[in-house]
């Protein structure tokens, strides 16, 4: 059986924490550049130019894009034919977050208890989503999530009769309510179906999809395009100061659900919506590290 050490996992997580926070995805910067071509007024243009300049400085100087370097959300897809040695997976991931936070001069933004609120001072613990998959690799996706946008997210249990129209209305309302708070232009992740908690997870995963890619299901692809157009009609604009670009993308992640329900979750991602991934041990050939391509 193939083996992987806890140290290898911690090393990878530490590196991904820093990379995700300092190197904006090419999909995002491409989308921001495209938005700059669409905007004609001075205000949105100036904000978009500042965001692009900001991403460039962060990459060149290897410093965080945003001071909110987020709570570390880690997706671990563990091959069922691989064995982890030298420690527990959760501990290895948290060791990685701790080291990445220190080495990358990332902000410690996590409090130990939601009400008593003492800062853990090392940005742990991470939020870990583990899934068991076929194969003998460990895929790690690190998605640091800032709370300016996380706070603007929402879950609603719609009725089946609400249908696509109800879903779209809820997404639109959520983005409108968010206004300038989540640092637009935003990425809108939508989870549709499943159960209460799965809808939220689906919406988080929807933020990992590369911006500019189509939904594989033509029905949902059409809904995404319609919603994006409607959101960009809201006029919130870059930074919330008005303009044609309120969202760069809408990603809908559907799943089977119960005959009585239509859960919908909307997870708002800011204009960087950070995520980087790797697979351990490195595959023998071909695949390279880089932006997530879910």
């Amino acid at each position: 059986m193939r083996e992987i050490t806890a140290v290898q996992i911690a090393d990878a997580v530490a590196r991904l924490c820093v990379e995700a926070n300092t190197d904006a995805g090419a999909d995002i910067t491409t989308a921001l550049e495209r938005a700059l071509k669409i905007e004609t007024d001075g205000m949105p243009r100036r904000v978009l130019e500042a965001l692009l300049e900001n991403a460039k400085i962060a990459k060149e100087e290897h410093i965080p894009i945003c001071q909110d370097t987020g709570m570390a959300v880690v997706f671990a897809e563990l091959g069922q034919d691989i064995h982890i040695t030298g420690g527990a997976l959760d501990d290895a991931i948290n060791d990685g977050v701790r080291r990445g936070t220190r080495e990358g001069y990332l902000r410690s933004s996590v409090v130990r208890d939601p009400v008593r609120r003492d800062n853990t001072l090392d940005n742990t613990p991470a939020v870990v989503h583990l899934s068991l998959v076929p194969g003998s690799g460990l895929r790690l996706i690190v998605a640091p999530k800032g709370f300016g946008s996380e706070n603007m997210s929402a879950v609603k249990m719609l009725k089946p009769a609400d249908g696509l129209e109800g879903l779209e209305r809820f997404v639109l309302e959520t983005v409108q309510t968010a206004g300038g708070n989540p640092c637009p232009p935003v990425i809108v992740g939508v989870g549709a179906g499943g159960t209460f908690e799965l809808a939220a997870l689906l919406s988080k995963k929807a933020l990992l999809r590369e911006v500019g890619t189509e939904n594989p299901d033509p029905f949902w692809d059409e809904a995404e395009k319609r919603l994006l157009a409607a959101i960009n009609e809201l006029g919130i604009g870059p930074g919330g100061f008005g303009g044609k670009t309120t969202a760069l993308a809408v990603h809908i992640n559907p799943y089977a659900t119960h005959i009585a329900g239509l859960p919908v979750a909307v997870n708002i991602g800011c204009h960087v919506t950070r995520h980087k991934e790797t697979t351990l041990p490195p595959p023998d050939a071909g695949k390279r590290d880089g932006d997530v391509t879910l």
């Binding site: 900001n54 400085i57 100087e61 800062n119």
Partner: peptide, 27 residues
């Protein structure tokens, strides 16, 4: 309002940092 999320750029405007209070609060 400052530009949300443009933190690497905004930091370039800062010339000096001095602690004032509540250092136990970290950031």
């Amino acid at each position: 309002s400052a530009i949300g999320g443009a933190a690497a750029l905004t930091a370039r405007c800062v010339e000096k940092v001095e602690p004032v209070a509540f250092e136990d609060l970290g950031t």
